[in-house]
Nucleic acid binder design. Structure first.
Length: 152
DNA sequence: GCCAACGTTGGC
DNA sequence: GCCAACGTTGGC
């Protein structure tokens, strides 16, 4: 089993939205590296840190699981969607996604500040300057440290 | 295939 | 709202 982190702006889709819905297709990813992680890396049952970006206190707010294999993101074919991609054809879809299932909310937000301050997390891509990836792998080592931070 | 211009992300 | 960092596009 692998570990991941997925970013979402809470104004657009928050951990509470996911809790309400239960399962949600993670649409709108339009970055090739992020797509490749979903398409080639993720397997049903993998664990995901749910991260809130572009908000007062950016940080990890809960845990979700991968709930499906990768399949084409329907929004790329919809001219009315803001994620529409006119260059993508059904025979050869450019953008893939996975379904994401709510597991639990953290008792508190593990903030980006906190993670940056941790020497043990210095190698985590998330805390590196200028990282804009919205889907990224998390090392087991870092996963475990963050779970301890939640309880601290 | 280089690189300037442009667009987007996301912390602050 | 600003802007640094980065990805993508398109002219050449």
């Amino acid at each position: 089993m692998k570990y991941w982190l997925m970013k979402s702006e809470p104004d657009a889709f928050s951990i509470d939205d996911l809790e309400r819905k239960g399962v949600e297709p993670w649409d709108g990813v339009r970055n090739y590296q992020a797509r490749n992680f979903m398409r080639d890396g993720m397997k049903p049952g993998d664990k995901i840190f749910f991260y809130h970006s572009n908000t007062d206190v950016p940080g990890i707010v809960g845990i979700a699981t991968v709930a499906s294999p990768a399949y084409p993101d329907e929004s790329q074919f919809n001219p009315k969607s803001k994620y529409y991609d006119e260059k993508s054809k059904r025979e050869e879809p450019r953008w893939m996604l996975v379904d994401v299932k709510f597991e639990r909310k953290f008792k508190r937000t593990v903030s980006l500040d906190e993670m940056k301050a941790r020497e043990e997390l210095a190698d985590m891509p998330l805390v590196r300057k200028g990282n804009r990836l919205s889907v990224m792998p998390v090392a087991k080592h870092d996963w475990d440290i963050i779970l301890k931070l939640e309880k601290a």
